[in-house]
């Protein structure tokens, strides 16, 4: 059993218009997402805006109620957990937010922010809590004396450390990291990424790392799940992602990221995607990527391909893709088959 199992997770937001606030449509923010996360690993969730990755993070913690699907943490169904079970889950599953400014209450002292979970869950005496906060400050690389200060007295990187300390307070098993370094400067970003890696080793943490930044996700993750318009299109071992992408969207995404190396940049060929990401309120029929896909064929307009494991040792184990025409790798050669990938066909056609 995996630590976290997500199956067919869906989150649709109603679009309400008019004076009567009638629901006139739906935004398919997350639409049928399934993946497992093993204990101790880091699952990267990457995609562009409108991809639904942040919504997945929040739905996992039930911070936003999901429309459908199941999330199971250590065998407990998060979607249907009772009040008591949920309290327990809250201490096991934590979250670190993107914005180091908006995620800390400006009117609370850092000690109260970091220690709030301990108070809520009634852990220890005042003195023990104080000691724990000091310990947490130390763990994230801040001095315990700084706990007496208010958030605005800290820089962005330090605030993100405070957010991490808060998430660690209750000894969680899983932490959702929602764009935790996107708002930070390059040099500070590296500090926080290293801290996250150290904490994972030290406390045996499991991470779901949500980010738009492919370089960061690849760096920190063991596996990477690529989202597009509310769907998972590819899950890959991060070690082979750059060299063996199978889904055309992953390929385009990888090729669009500029590499900080002028010689590499001059020799690279860029796959330019035409147009913009369509609206998740009106996703394309068939495969959601087909209007922008350079490999799209007739069949791609009929139904969304199933998300299935792909064969081929080169592409790594546990490699999954939702594409009728995934890139294949054999003996170092890349090729795309003319015939649609049988496993990805809808059940009635396969």
């Amino acid at each position: 059993m995996s630590l976290l199992e997500v199956s067919d997770l869906r989150k649709h937001f109603p679009i309400r218009t008019g004076v009567l606030k009638r629901t006139t449509g739906w935004v398919y923010a997350v639409d049928g997402v399934s993946f497992d996360v093993e204990k101790g690993e880091t699952m990267g969730l990457v995609g562009e805006s409108g991809g639904g990755k942040s919504t997945v993070g929040r739905a996992l913690l039930r911070l936003t109620p999901a429309t459908g699907g199941n999330v199971t943490f250590e065998g407990i169904n998060v979607m249907k957990a009772s009040r008591g079970e949920m309290q327990k889950l809250r201490s096991d599953m934590q979250i670190v937010f993107q914005d180091p400014y908006a995620s800390l209450n400006p009117r609370m002292r850092v000690r109260d922010i970091v220690g709030e979970g301990l108070v809520i869950h009634d852990v220890g005496t005042d003195a023990e809590r104080k000691k724990r906060v000091a310990e947490l400050m130390d763990i994230v690389g801040l001095s315990p004396e700084q706990a007496e200060r208010y958030p605005h007295e800290f820089s962005g990187g330090q605030r993100q450390r405070i957010g991490i300390a808060r998430a660690l307070a209750l000894n969680p098993k899983l932490i959702i990291l929602d764009e935790p370094v996107s708002a930070l400067d390059v040099s500070i970003r590296a500090q926080v990424l290293n801290l996250l890696e150290d904490l994972q080793d030290e406390f045996d943490l499991t991470y779901v790392f949500v980010s738009h930044d492919l370089s960061v996700v690849k760096h920190i993750s063991d596996r990477v799940a690529v989202m597009y318009l509310g769907k998972l299109v590819e899950i890959s071992d991060s070690a082979v992602l750059y060299d063996f992408p199978q889904h055309p969207y992953t390929e385009a995404l990888l090729s669009a990221v500029p590499i900080p190396d002028p010689q590499t940049e001059r020799s690279r060929k860029r796959i330019m995607l035409e147009g913009d990401v369509p609206s998740p309120a009106d996703p394309p029929k068939g495969c959601v990527f087909h209007p922008r896909c350079p490999r799209a064929q007739e069949i791609c307009t009929t139904a969304m391909p199933r998300h299935v494991p792909t064969p081929g040792a080169d592409a790594g184990e546990r490699h999954e893709v939702a594409c009728y025409f995934p890139a294949r790798f054999k003996d170092g050669q890349r090729f795309v088959a003319d015939e649609p990938f049988r496993d990805a066909l809808p059940e009635d056609q396969a």
Binding site: L63, R90, S91, F97, D99, L104, I120, L170
Partner: peptide, 10 residues
Amino acid sequence: EYVEAARAQG
């Protein structure tokens, strides 16, 4: 987000 964070803390 800090309200969401508090909710995540329980």
